[in-house]
Computed example of a mutant assay.
Amino acid sequence: MTPVTSPVALDRVAQHVAVVTIDRPDARNAINGAVTQTLRDIVDEIERDPEVWVVVLTGAGGKAFSAGADLREVGAGRIQSLMDPDYGFAGFVHAPRRKVWIAAIEGFALAGGFELVLACDLAVASETSSFGLPEVKRGLIASAGGLYRIARALPKKVAIELVATSGQLSAGRAFELGLLSRLAPAGGALATAIGLAEEICANSPLAVRESVAVARAADDLTEAQLRQASEAAQARIVLTEDFKEGPRAFVEKRAPVWVGR
């Protein structure tokens, strides 16, 4: 009997760092119902795991991060299987997440694949990768957050041109425009993303989590609301062991030992 393999793999690759891999390389890592359910379950598992602080999301095979929705599923009338009622497309794009997620892109990230990238906090790509939302070419729209997230991530006129022409953005141009945190050599996106994750893990996980939560909300809240959110985050941090450990380690001239509480 042929063993059943998971369409999404979860691996803990370094201290406090996990890698989540969409593992359908023969289908260009397209999203089907199995990917959606498995990825949703993995998001929940990671959220419950106090030992995972940062997560890298990538695609298997090195040729595509993800081509987006599996059109065979769409053509068969099973499009709803790609949409979790709470977490959205792929069980990910609208998932409530406290941990930092980094997209690691080799090859192309198109349509829903690009929307997965836009849903992550950070993105690292190889210099040979590319991005696009080609939905209008097929009479569709990028309805999984891509239309508004791309307009937040890029200059608006660049974003509108990409959406309206169904064109593609090279990795070099994406890096210049600030869509990518780091640009890696061909084949190096995952290693670079893991390195970035380890840099983040050198800091207090609670402070990172609270800080990122406020930064995520910057486009949606008013200045007064953001000030209130920042002050509330500070009030929570003051009560933690890590708040004491950071200054103590500085005075003692040693690396801090974070306990995450």
Rank of each mutant, 00 (worst) to 15 (best):
I105S: 10
E198N: 03
A202L: 14
V20P: 03
A119S: 08
A109R: 06
I237L: 13
T165P: 09
K253L: 07
A90R: 01
A69G: 00
A103T: 01
T165E: 13
T38C: 10
A9V: 07
A189E: 14
V19M: 01
A67S: 14
T36F: 08
R12F: 11
N29S: 05
L118R: 03
A202K: 09
D11W: 00
R227G: 15
P247C: 14
L154N: 06
D86A: 15
T5R: 03
A109P: 13
R236W: 04
I150T: 13
G260I: 08
P155H: 05
E241T: 06
A90C: 10
G77F: 08
A189L: 11
F131K: 00
G172T: 08
E199S: 09
V8P: 06
D23C: 13
D242L: 08
K63W: 14
T192C: 12
R24A: 12
P205I: 00
R254E: 15
F175R: 03
A34P: 05
V100P: 05
E127G: 09
T240D: 12
K156T: 14
T240E: 13
L39P: 12
Q37A: 12
Q228L: 15
G187K: 01
L154F: 11
L122D: 10
L169I: 12
Q37S: 13
A218C: 05
G195T: 09
K63Y: 05
Q37G: 04
R72M: 07
H94R: 13
F250P: 05
E73D: 15
T192W: 10
M1L: 07
D219T: 14
I141V: 07
E223P: 07
A111N: 15
L183A: 11
G195F: 12
L39A: 10
S130A: 15
D11Y: 00
G188N: 02
A34K: 02
L118Y: 05
V238F: 10
E47M: 10
S181L: 15
G62Y: 04
T128P: 02
A109C: 13
V19D: 01
A104D: 10
M83T: 06
A218G: 00
V257H: 10
G107H: 02
G172L: 04
A235P: 08
P96F: 07
L169T: 04
G195I: 06
P256W: 06
R209D: 06
D84L: 00
T21S: 01
P7K: 07
D219S: 15
R78A: 12
L183W: 10
A30I: 01
L133Q: 12
I31W: 11
A90P: 04
L154I: 10
A34F: 12
R138D: 08
K99W: 11
A103C: 02
V214E: 01
D242G: 11
G107E: 04
F65D: 05
A60D: 14
A255Y: 04
A109W: 07
L71C: 00
V136D: 03
E252Y: 00
A18F: 09
T36R: 01
S230P: 06
A18W: 08
A142T: 09
S143V: 15
L177V: 02
D70A: 13
V136P: 02
A215H: 02
I141T: 04
V4F: 01
K253W: 01
